[in-house]
Structure formats: structure tokens, C-alpha cells
């Protein structure tokens, strides 16, 4: 059986969990077994939300509605998931490689002595053993990794597989998991509100030092607003305090894989590319035709961002008006 951990915060199942379920369901189909979901903690409108996870391919949802799971503690979670997986006889356990997946999956792997592939980008190849492709060298290569243990743990990179839906509903079973004594107490959670979090954004508009200063960021923000994108920046920009550090992407910042990465006035240094090279479509606006970013781009304009960007925003507005 394939068990997918569906992560929730504040009673909402995270979007990345839907993708993880779709992926787990496909593995279940491949190996002739069922895909079942595990939810820890209280979910809002559970009576409708949980059966609806069937849409992504889950036949059953194991629901451990215990308030002890509402605050995040990777240790408590890993112990509970291990208990649930063992009780249900799971032989593949799937996570989304989100901030919580990165905290829990390695713990679970060590606890169950079950091999882990973290950062998976494709379905396992089961033709000889169980081999999972993962991203390595910061997006510059892939490794095919064999998991050599009876129980396997996979943490799927967000946006690597996609969400797949059908018209089915899942059976929900309440389960009782005894939470272990936690050693962490969450004291506060601060979320940036009103904007799409960068890590979850499908569209990202990003600016570099070519924009000359923070006062010119409307060139990034106007387009982002028009298309509903999150904003990002290069390290040079964050280091100069033009933009907040959480917007910095690249080798030493966030690694993202949106459907669109729209880079304005960014040279495309190898360390910058390391954080964005898994994006599906890359657009580069740069006045230097020799900018390295063009080599990694799908579309580009060689031109002055100060002239080109307002025209692009106008064109998007027109396109939206036409529908």
C-alpha cells in the first residue's frame, strides 16, 4: 500500500499534498495496490474536505483528529506516521518535499530504517528494483537512486509531477494515534499575508540589479499584479536591502520550480540559475545580449527593462480585456 502524508496548517490541507497524492496514486497503480492518505491534526470541514481527497486518487483517508498534532513537531509527527504506516502495512510512504516534508521524511526514514529519496522528480522505475530520479547539483543534474529496503520513503519536489484529478471520493476512517511527548513548543507563526508565497507560486516575476534601485520595483510588481504572480529577486538585490531576504532565490536562497519565471535585469549567474533552473518556462529581459541568462531561457527580449516592461504590462492588460 502507498501511504501519502497530507500536510495541513491551520486546518487546511496544503496544495502540495494534492500533488503528492496524485503521485502516490500513480505509484499505487503501477504496483497494483491502493493509495491511502494520512492526515494528522484537525482539518476544517473534515466531513467534506477529506472524502474529496479521493479526487486525487486516494481510496482511503486515515484521519488522526487529535489537537496534539496541531502544533508542528517533526519528532512527534515522524513517530505517529511510523505507527500509522506500520499498522496499515504501507510499503511506500510519500511526502511533498516542502518545509515540513524536509523535516519529517528523514526522521521517518531513520526511524523505520526505510530508504529515502528526497527531492524526487519522477515516478519510480520498478523494472529492476525501485529506482527514483531526484534532482542533484542544485538542479544541474539528476541522480537515479535505488531504495534497497522493504519500506520506501519518497519526498516529491513540488511542481515536479502535477496534480491529477478524477471523479472519485475517498472513504474516511478515524484512527487513534498516541502522540509521543514533544520536545518543541511552537510559540508563534508569522505569515506574510495578501501575497502568494513564493514557494507555492505558479508564476514568479523577479528583478535583479539591472533595475538600479528599490524605487523602480514597480517594473516587477506591476506585471506580477497583472498576472497574479509572486515576486522574487537576485541575491545582489537582497544583499543591497532593496528587497526582503525571503524573496532571494538561487543557490543560497530559495529554490523554486514555478510554471513561469520572468527575470528582469538579472544576469543569470550560475548560482542564481541553481535556484530557478527547474522552472517550466523562463523569460529573460536584459539589455545585454551576452547575458548568460539567455542561454537558460525559453523566451527573451534584448532591451531596456525601463522601456520594455511598461509595454508588456499594457499588452497583458489588453490580452485580459479581450479574454
Amino acid at each position: 500500500m502507498v501511504l501519502i502524508f497530507a500536510d495541513q496548517t491551520d486546518g487546511q490541507i496544503k496544495k502540495q499534498a494534492f500533488e503528492a497524492i496524485s503521485y502516490g496514486a500513480k505509484i499505487a497503480g503501477q504496483t497494483g495496490t491502493t493509495a491511502e492518505v494520512l492526515v494528522l491534526g484537525t482539518v476544517e470541514n473534515a466531513a467534506s474536505t477529506l472524502p474529496a481527497l479521493g479526487k486525487y486518487g486516494a481510496s482511503r483517508v486515515h484521519y488522526a483528529d487529535n489537537p496534539a498534532f496541531n502544533g508542528f513537531d517533526a519528532q512527534v509527527y515522524a513517530a505517529a506516521i511510523a505507527d500509522a504506516a506500520t499498522a496499515a502495512g504501507a510499503d511506500v510512504i510519500v511526502f511533498s518535499n516542502t518545509t515540513s516534508g524536509k523535516a519529517i521524511a528523514p526522521r521517518l526514514s531513520a526511524r523505520l530504517k526505510a530508504g529515502l529519496v528526497a527531492g524526487a522528480v519522477a515516478l519510480p522505475d520498478t523494472s529492476a528494483g525501485f529506482v527514483v530520479k531526484k534532482s542533484v547539483f542544485s538542479g544541474k543534474a539528476f541522480a537515479n537512486v535505488a531504495i534497497n529496503t522493504p519500506v520506501k520513503v519518497i519526498s516529491l519536489n513540488p511542481n515536479a509531477f502535477g496534480i491529477q484529478t478524477s471523479e472519485t471520493t475517498a472513504e474516511v476512517v478515524s484512527i487513534n494515534l498516541t502522540p509521543s511527548a514533544g520536545k518543541i513548543k511552537v510559540t508563534s507563526v508569522n505569515k506574510v499575508t495578501g501575497t502568494v508565497p513564493l514557494s507555492e507560486a505558479e508564476l514568479v516575476v523577479s528583478g535583479g540589479r539591472g533595475l538600479k534601485g528599490p524605487e523602480n520595483w514597480h517594473l516587477v510588481e506591476d506585471l506580477a499584479k497583472e498576472i497574479g504572480a509572486a515576486t522574487a529577486c537576485s541575491r545582489a538585490v537582497a544583499d543591497a536591502h532593496w528587497r526582503p531576504h525571503h524573496e532571494h532565490v538561487g543557490q543560497t536562497g530559495g529554490a523554486i520550480a514555478p510554471n513561469l519565471y520572468f527575470a528582469i535585469g538579472i544576469s543569470g549567474a550560475i548560482q542564481h540559475l541553481a535556484g530557478v533552473n527547474r522552472s517550466k518556462t523562463i523569460v529573460v529581459i536584459n539589455k545585454d545580449p551576452e547575458a548568460p541568462f539567455f542561454k537558460a531561457a525559453d523566451y527573451g527580449i534584448v532591451g531596456d527593462a525601463f522601456e520594455v516592461m511598461p509595454k508588456i504590462v499594457e499588452a497583458v492588460k489588453k490580452m485580459k480585456a479581450v479574454g
Partner: peptide, 29 residues
């Protein structure tokens, strides 16, 4: 618990499609 079977490089990009700075609406299209 695991072992690396092989490495591979991502498929080469098809190459950038350049749009003229005079017709940015073409990029949007």
C-alpha cells in the same frame, strides 16, 4: 538504505526564442 545507480544531465534547452524589444506584445502572445 539507498544507492546511486546513475547520474544524468537535463536535456539541453531548445534555445531561447528572442522577441524584438519593439514588439513586446508578441512575447505576451
Amino acid at each position: 538504505l539507498t544507492s546511486i545507480v546513475s547520474f544524468e544531465l537535463p536535456p539541453a534547452k531548445a534555445g531561447v526564442k528572442l522577441v524584438s524589444a519593439d514588439t513586446p506584445e508578441e512575447l505576451v502572445r
